[in-house]
Amino acid sequence: MTATGLIARKEAGDLLLSLRGLGWLLTMAVVLSVFGLLLVGNTELSLLDNAQVVYDMGGIVTALGALLAVVVGTDAVAGERERGTLVSLLLTPASRNSILLGKLGGQAIAWAVMYAIALPYFWAVGSTGQNLVDGAVSVALLGTPVVLGFGFLAMGLGARLDSARSSLLPGLIVLLLSASPLLLGPSLRQSAIGRAFDAVNPFSGALNAYDAVIIDSQSIAAQVPHFAVTFVWLALTLWFAARGFSRVSR
């Protein structure tokens, strides 16, 4: 196995075999469970349109995935540095790029695990309608660049800042700002600033695509502008992570 594969497997182990990683996944699952139980237990929510339910689930899974990515990304660089494990990796014959790619692979595995956990929830709330597959595919295609981008951002911050705490905070702030379309009402989003923010915000890109595909029954192939926003975000954060990681010295 290559160094990249070894490190990606190790990162997956950090998530799936350590109590810390399993605790994060459990937290994510509990949030999804609370949403599912609200749907069956709350009269108003239970009257939501099926497409709306799948759309909401897509948004929540993307937001939780991005949150997990920020935590995992921070831990992969800043956390490892604080625990004193990063320098041992840097001093192996594996190149910086291999180590970085392995850690990026770890991010992808973390998101895949999170997505796999989310699939039963999608099925549970969306199987009575016809939007289930569209919803799951949209989240896979458009949520992936958004989520991985947040992980790469956190890795870049972790490489530049001194501690895990100081790099986690800006990562969470960017996530909160980007995920604001989930929190803001439609009127705020329709203002000039709201529209401009929507145009460049990867999170909005993904949500608008979910809206178009799940609620308005448009085809996924027609979401090119939204794909563009999310993949530009992914490319920028990848560059940010790579630049930061090349300077890590301890």
Partner: peptide, 16 residues
Amino acid sequence: PVVESQRVLPVAIGIP
């Protein structure tokens, strides 16, 4: 029914 409790409950309780 939009959401069926017999589907949601096993998942919402089982996965955690």
